[in-house]
Design a protein around this nucleic acid. Structure first.
Lengths: 173, 173
DNA sequence: TATAACTATTCATATTGTGAATAATTATAT
DNA sequence: ATATAATTATTCACAATATGAATAGTTATA
């Protein structure tokens, strides 16, 4: 499947554990409220993702039993998880089609966790977009095919729109 | 998954059968060459898609045996298929994230099959984009949340870039 | 007081995508 | 001349991803 829809977003979930341990049910609600319009992730998926992140060693888990209620599986961040999150957060998105979700999710964490480094990330992201532009323009130079020319123009349009938005993004700090 | 990645593109394949019957292996090569950079569809998927389109009654099939070669399953368009394709082709894309693939594929067929109606489609598509814009701007008016404001601005940027590109698209007829 | 919604998780299933296997044939390389 | 690779044409098992129902007690709403 979409080689990068998921794999590249999974570490983002670690960000929700920076301040406190969480369990999936609870997190799923907050997630839906805060990011549901940006990144669609059903409740069942959340359970599966936390389980995987734990298998990878980024989260650890305690089972907390409660009277008259199902037991909670409380996950908390490991040191490896903290490092992984920071690494994910500060990495620019390499594929234009993922910016829509990935960058917006990164931005969410920069703002809600009040983290430094947004400016640097924006700079890196602009550089990556610039390279995409160059690559497209280069291979578009020697194009006879009108159709391919239009495809390239479409993509350039999207890229440039993102570049402009990134500026706006810095101003709204 | 993405409720509309696939379902909304499947009928597009019918367009390859407008001029002549085809079999999957052969079609897959042409597809890869013409649209591979716009719509990624592996060979195995092509087989599966043609089979489904046949089950839906949009394609019919003949098995043609050949000496010393695997038999070919040749598919051809039914009347229902012809109608379905025309309907798909002239319908604007309703979800912004699908325009990137859907509209570009429609454009491909308008051009390669030399079909009329591109202008009308562009008009419809612009109307749909205009509605998206209105909906976003409306619910953005009463926004306190700076983050959501940025999300909305990102989307507006994408939409406006597509609108500009659509103009270009008409000029390149 | 019946009906619905909430808490918390799991699981079976649906959907979608990938890569290998097949087996004969022709092209390329040493 | 001969081994190696690529081509033809399709199928299939499997991986990865997403959805909805099932569970079972509890509290809220009608």
């Amino acid at each position: 499947m979409p080689e990068d829809t998921f794999l590249s977003l999974q570490p983002a979930l670690l960000g929700f554990f920076i301040n406190a341990p969480r369990y999936a049910y609870d997190l799923s609600r907050e997630f839906e409220h805060d990011l549901g319009r940006v990144w669609r992730l059903g409740r069942s998926l959340m359970y599966a993702q936390l389980k995987e992140l734990a298998e990878q060693g980024y989260l650890a888990m305690d089972v907390v039993t409660q009277p008259n209620r199902p037991a909670r599986k409380i996950y908390y961040l490991t040191d490896a998880g903290r490092i992984r999150f920071a690494q994910w957060l500060n990495q620019p998105t390499m594929h234009i089609r993922n910016i829509r979700v990935e960058f917006l999710v990164r931005l969410y964490f920069f703002r809600t966790l009040n983290l430094p480094g947004l400016q640097e990330l924006v700079t890196k992201q602009k550089a990556v977009l610039g390279e995409m532009e160059d690559a497209l323009e280069k291979n578009a130079g020697d194009i006879q095919d009108d159709y391919w020319r239009l495809v390239v123009d479409f993509r350039l349009g999207q890229i440039r729109a993102v570049q402009q938005w990134l500026e706006l993004c810095l101003q709204t700090v």
